[in-house]
Each structure stands twice: as structure tokens, then as C-alpha cells.
Nucleic acid binder design. Sequence first.
DNA 1: ATCACCATGTAAGCTGTTACATGATTAA
DNA 2: TTAATCATGTAACAGCTTACATGGTGAT
Lengths: 188, 188
Amino acid sequence: MTSSLGHALLGLLARTPGTGYDLTQRMSRPVGYFWSAAHSQIYPELARLESAGLVRHEIIEGAGPRPTKRYELTELGRRELTEWVTSAAEPARERDPLMLRVYSLWLAEPAAATDLINQVRQGHVRRREEYAEMAATLEAGGTDRQGLAEPGFAAYATLRAGLGYEEHRIVWCDWLLDRLRENPGSAN
Amino acid sequence: MTSSLGHALLGLLARTPGTGYDLTQRMSRPVGYFWSAAHSQIYPELARLESAGLVRHEIIEGAGPRPTKRYELTELGRRELTEWVTSAAEPARERDPLMLRVYSLWLAEPAAATDLINQVRQGHVRRREEYAEMAATLEAGGTDRQGLAEPGFAAYATLRAGLGYEEHRIVWCDWLLDRLRENPGSAN
DNA sequence: ATCACCATGTAAGCTGTTACATGATTAA
DNA sequence: TTAATCATGTAACAGCTTACATGGTGAT
């Protein structure tokens, strides 16, 4: 009955306990590459996880008008996460806004289409560099050679997937740009 | 102000007019690879597009208790779609449920992890074959050599992206499976 | 003083999924 | 006659985004 967001939060807390604010930050940078959430979604979800007995909190000192809560996994939460992680994967329904555009790209001026794809390509190159740097850092620290049972390896595996994704997209952009150059006009 | 689903429907109607039921079918197979929607979402969206003047309908004979409506684009709808297609692409927030699992894969038994990744790999291989067949059909018909201004080429371009995606995922699965074989135990 | 950062929440609205509801035509 | 296909809608709910609301600490 726990949602994807719930499992994302459990996955973060299994590594290090933290406040809702802290989880919001962590959701945006490393995890945000494959799952994202705003704080307005995270706070109520933490409350739900707590009432399900999967996490618990203690009050610590911190800045702010309301008490600062530090959350951590319970044994039940750890068990739930562990069971979920290898349970049958639901068929991912894709939602790719770029492909939605490309599907109607035949309506656009060739120059505008080229601009669009160039812009998209740039974004992928930027992100590839970002991933490559992170991967290099992890590799320098030996994280890539960590055992399967260590969290660092799991993070490295998602990074590798991200790198592969960006590379495939860049290759595809180059293919399309080639076609747009060869055949800049209208019909065959 | 038009949503992604709205643009998906406009993109379908720009190719061929059709009923809501027909659009539901077309959303599931070729377009569903990168965008999906149920009929319960499509019917109200068509009504919204119509009240915005982007599509119009005529009543035709058909089976069913209610009148059968055939929708088509208006000139305004075509213009809206054409402008949108090359407008600034919003940064896609990724939502990849598999990576969410992988991020917590360090908690799983190595055997269970291997099973999961094998299962995922199989799914990608199946889909790659599906795409490859469709691509072969289009190539045999010369669709891949169509001009940029023809809808067939746009469809072919999305197919190529799909093929590339599946391939990259298979490569990544193989990399992970290799690691799981090499290092089936716990910590380093 | 002003700004950035820490910190937690609620509310309104949109998008998307699942379930409910109806009924005609055609083929096995 | 039974099932599949054509055909259109509504309702309830879950998930996610954007905006509203508050206020303390520390650095410039």
C-alpha cells in the first residue's frame, strides 16, 4: 500500500536519517535524477509512513517556528523496503514529452526543428558531463568496486544508467540532425 | 494552456480524424510507447479542446447508445500544435520506478537482485524486438526515407528513439548482471 | 537591515487511474 | 446465446504542482 514516493523516502532514510527539509534536498539532487518530489508532498508522506509504523521521529533542536523532526527507519520500514525492492516490477508506462513533440515534428519548419533538437542535445550533453563527473568522483573513491550490499554501489548503478541514457539520447539527436541536414525540405 | 494530453490528441488528429474510441486505440499502440491515456481522460479532454476551438466534431453513424462523434482539427488547432511543437521544451522531470528500486538494491539478496534484473532485461528485449519489427516494416515501405514534412518520418524518428532506449537498457542490465556474478556476496 | 538558508506545514487545483454505467452490432 | 468490438460518458480517488503561510539563525 506504500507509494513510490514512500519507497523513495524509505530508500533515503535507510542510508541516513534526516529531517523533512533534508530529505527534500536529497530528493532533488542525487535521487531527483530518477524521482522527484516537492516538500509539500514529502511532509504529508512522512506522516503517512509514520502512522504505518515504517518510520519514526525524534525532536531535535533546529531553526524554525515549528519543532524540527529527525526521521529514521523502523525495523518494519526496513523490511517493507527490502521486500519491495525485488518484488514484481510494474510495467512502466512511458511519458516522454520530447517524443510527443517529435511525433508532430513534421508540421514544423526544418530550421525550427533543427533548433529544437540542438537545444535538446545540449541539455543531454550538459547532463552527461554532470553524471560523468559524479561517476569519476565515485570511481576515484572506489565506490564502483563496493560490494552489492553497500549503498554506494546501488547509487553508482543508477548513475551508470543515467550516463547510458544521456549517451543514447545524444546519438539519437545526432541521427536526427543528420537527417535534417540531408533532407531539409518538404516531401520526398 | 493546452496540456500534454491535449497536444497528443491534436498530434493524432493532425494525421487522421477519428472518434474518441479510435483515439483511445491509437493512444495505446503507436503513441502509447511514449504517452498513454485512458478513454476516461480522453473524452473530457476532447470536449475541452473543442470548447477552446482547437477541434470540432460531426455526428456519424456508429454502434453505441450515444451519438458517435468524429473529431478533426480546426485551423486554430493546427496552428496551436505547430507552434507548440518547437516551443521551448520544459525540463523533463524523470520518473523511473526501476531506478528507484535499484537505489535500494543493496538491501536485497544477490539472487533476488539477479532475478529482478533478468526479468527487466527480458522486458526490454521483448520491446526491442517489437520496435525492430515495426522499424523493418516502415523501412520496407520507404517511410524512413520520407521527407521531414511527412508524418511517417516523425513516427519513424520516435521509433528509432525507442529502439535506442531499449538497447541502452539492455547494455546496462548486462553490466549489472556481470557485476552481480563477479561479486555475489556482501561487502567488499 | 537584508538576504540566504533552515524548517514545517496547509490549500487549491490539475493530471491520471480505476471503477461504474449503458447499449448497439457482428461474428462464432 | 455468448463474446468481442464499437462507442461514450461520469465519479471517486490518488498523485503531483503551485501557491500560501510562518518564523528562526547566521552571514554580508
